[in-house]
């Protein structure tokens, strides 16, 4: 029996490796916040945090969708364009006089439909997600300019109310409705990933698609589902963005997919799939938001530093994942 217990001893220390990246992100976030608080008095105002959420609510929602895709080991480059297209379609239909409720339904259907189609092409024809979603990105961006070459303002009552409603103390600390919607999306996504078969299948496919198939899991259906979910999240993100900007513009959210992917990776989700949490993605988005806020607070730094810092963080986290991956074997 002694040999047996020896054999069954885990070859690893008890600290679960899968939590290391998320913990690293949490530490990073606290350090960044600490730096902010120590440097700028106004930073400690709770509203600073709220503003990070208000400014990045739509990014958070889209990043949650991307988390599903990346967990299966895929990627979705179309999200930025789908966000823009959703905002654009909403603005256009509202200008045409359609009722707000109908516009919402239509706008929320476009993204998932496109995602579903892309998922089908990826699954049935076995084409790399990168290329398929690139086509989706071209398509959605093309649709934007097809609808209108210039920005369309939104004057609809429902939209303006959603945009201006302050929850909390309107003159003190408050958040927008978008933040609540974003939190709701996060909660639903976290529940789906942790407690439903779909969610667990997402992890299994990301871990080892062949095994998942041999274990009898619905690999194709799940794969199509994650691109549909990502499309839905991008659509919700587009609506939130249109609440935020009260317009639809053909060239808005260009390159947003990169920010989204960066947020997911910095949030500890492994780009090869199978490991990561929605909670990590929330942290990743917060890290991006806090960096932006820091750079805004510091007048001397310019906005491009955001990209450089994000690139550096991407590098650090990818390297971290790689190192953990090596130890894995």
């Amino acid at each position: 029996m002694t040999t047996l217990s020896l054999l069954t001893t885990r070859t690893w220390s008890r600290l679960p490796r899968r939590h290391v990246p998320v913990l690293a992100t949490l530490v990073l976030l606290l350090v960044l916040y600490g730096v902010g608080v120590s440097q700028y008095r106004a930073f400690s105002n709770i509203q600073v945090i709220f503003n990070v959420f208000i400014d990045n609510g739509f990014l958070l929602v889209v990043a949650v969708g991307m988390t599903f895709v990346i967990l299966t080991g895929g990627i979705d480059l179309s999200v930025g364009s789908v966000v823009a297209m959703t905002a654009m379609v909403s603005a256009f239909l509202l200008r045409e006089g359609l009722p707000a409720a109908l516009v919402l339904v239509i706008a929320l259907l476009i993204g998932p439909t496109l995602g579903f189609l892309m998922g089908c092409v990826i699954h049935f024809f076995d084409i790399q997600p990168f290329i398929v979603t690139l086509a989706g990105m071209f398509f959605a961006r093309g649709m934007c300019t097809f609808i209108s070459g210039s920005s369309i303002p939104i004057t609809d009552g429902f939209w303006t109310r959603m945009s201006q409603e302050r929850i909390g103390n309107p003159s003190g600390n408050f958040v927008s409705i978008s933040v609540l919607i974003a939190f709701a999306v996060v909660a639903v996504a976290a529940y789906t990933l942790a407690y439903t078969r779909l969610g667990r299948n997402v992890y299994a496919i990301g871990g080892n698609p062949q095994s998942a198939l041999l274990m009898g899991l619905p690999v194709g259906r799940t794969r199509i589902a994650v691109y549909t979910i990502s499309g839905l999240c991008a659509a919700i993100g587009g609506i939130l963005l249109s609440f935020y900007t009260l317009s639809g513009a053909p060239l808005i959210a260009v390159g947003m997919e990169l920010d989204v992917i960066a947020a997911v990776v910095i949030g500890g989700t492994v780009l090869t799939g199978g490991s990561g949490y929605v909670f990590g993605t929330v942290l990743g988005v917060l890290v991006l938001g806090v960096i932006q806020t820091l750079i805004t607070f510091d007048g001397s730094l310019n906005s491009w530093w955001t990209k450089i810092v994000i690139g550096g963080l991407l590098f650090a986290f990818i390297l971290l994942q790689r190192l953990i991956g090596i130890r894995y074997k």
């Binding site: 078969r197 992890y203 299994a204 871990g207 274990m215």
Partner: peptide, 15 residues
């Protein structure tokens, strides 16, 4: 043919 990224219990019961 299991998923090494999932827990032992899940590997037994997934699906």
């Amino acid at each position: 043919n299991l998923c090494t990224n999932l827990s032992v219990a899940e590997n037994i019961f997934i699906g």
